[in-house]
């Protein structure tokens, strides 16, 4: 059997006396969209930070394509194919949409000599950045400043920047957060189009989006995965209903 794309093996992380990850086991298979859900405070953000390399787990291992990346720096994980969508913050907002995408293409290049060239000096790189923008539907606004984009478009740009690095696994941390109903629908449509081409680990509060997109869902409660399964299985799971879905009729 092939290794899963991403495998978390008994991850532990504590802050002082607070156990935020208490033995997390999770596998994202090639090609699947795997949603990670859980009530606030379940430890989703800490888990994502450990996968991305911002935080070191206290114990346990993380494997990407069978390779142990537990001790690898964040930028090396990115170069191995971990693509993370990030909220574009104000300073990069001064650059054009295309330059932001170019930045993402460039970030993966190791060669120091090519780094001293002009930003748009290489047609192949510009093409790659444009392709990433086209994939998320931003081709038309490539010369606009990122700060002039709508909130939804900014989310699309984040996605394009993650795609520009040609990831094997997309790590999406709440892509729907802060989006209005229409923008949310657009984002779900967009992700629907991407999920056939990338493996995705999706952390999301918007249950409509999760159930529309996910092939499998894992439920994180109090630092541990209490259930993993298809959306249908998760809906039917008694422990999940008790711990999470039953809490309120409309989560978030």
């Amino acid at each position: 059997m092939n290794d899963p794309l991403l495998r978390l093996d008994d991850l532990h992380k504590s802050f002082g006396g607070l156990k935020v990850s208490a033995g997390v086991n999770l596998a994202v298979r090639a090609g699947e969209t795997h949603a990670l859900i859980g009530p606030n405070g379940a430890g989703k953000t800490t888990l994502i930070a450990q996968i991305a390399g911002e935080l070191r787990p206290d114990a346990g291992k993380i494997f990407l394509c069978g390779r142990d990346i537990t001790r690898l720096a964040a930028h090396k994980r990115a170069r191995l194919g971990l693509g993370r969508a990030f909220q574009v913050t104000s300073p990069m907002a001064g650059m054009t949409v295309l330059d932001n995408a170019l930045l993402a293409v460039m970030a993966q290049m190791g060669s120091p000599l090519r780094m001293w060239r002009p930003v748009r000096g290489e047609a192949a790189m510009v093409e790659e950045a444009r392709a990433a923008l086209a994939r998320v539907g931003l081709a038309e606004v490539e010369e606009e400043k990122a700060r002039d984009l709508s909130h939804g478009q900014r989310r699309q740009l984040e996605l394009a920047m993650a795609l520009a690095g040609r990831p094997r696994l997309l790590l999406l941390d709440e892509p729907m957060a802060g989006l209005g109903p229409r923008e949310s629908r657009d984002m779900v449509d967009l992700l629907c189009g991407l999920k056939d081409h990338y493996a995705i680990l999706l952390v999301e509060h918007d249950m409509d989006a999760v159930f529309a997109l996910a092939d499998r869902i894992s439920v994180l409660v109090a630092g541990a995965i209490i259930a993993t399964g298809t959306p249908r299985q998760i809906r039917a799971d008694a422990a999940v209903r008790r711990a999470y879905l039953g809490e309120e009729d409309t989560p978030c």
Partner: peptide, 23 residues
Amino acid sequence: TRFGMLVRAAAANRAMAEALGVD
């Protein structure tokens, strides 16, 4: 230059730059 652009990006948002693969 590309290098300068990456430097500016890393200054603006280090975590984002690293997630994109910048050393």
